[in-house]
């Protein structure tokens, strides 16, 4: 089992190590993109409205019901 895990880890290590330049550029883009999405957009601009304003499912349901029947 240990050997299998080691082989998988080596497989990824070598893969990344010998990655061509275009591959490295792609990974840089992926990392920047994920950082923007999760550390900037999700945290500061996209709070989940119901989760941030209500604690329980009952409260969330009541709020939406109020919205639907006002």
């Amino acid at each position: 089992m240990k050997k299998v895990i080691r082989n998988i880890a080596l497989f990824y290590y070598n893969g990344f190590k010998h990655m061509p330049l275009w591959g490295k550029k792609m990974w840089l883009i992926i990392i920047i993109k994920l950082l923007i999405m999760f550390l900037l957009l999700k945290l500061f601009f996209f709070p989940n409205f119901l989760n941030s304003n209500f604690d329980s499912d009952e409260e969330k349901g009541n709020h939406v019901l109020k919205e639907l029947t006002k």
Binding site: F46, N48, F49
Partner: peptide, 17 residues
């Protein structure tokens, strides 16, 4: 994934419904 962010923030009534 951004579409899912938008569901939670901009479309909360829909997401619940």
């Amino acid at each position: 994934i951004i579409l899912e962010f938008e569901f939670g923030t901009n479309w909360s009534n829909y997401s619940w419904f």
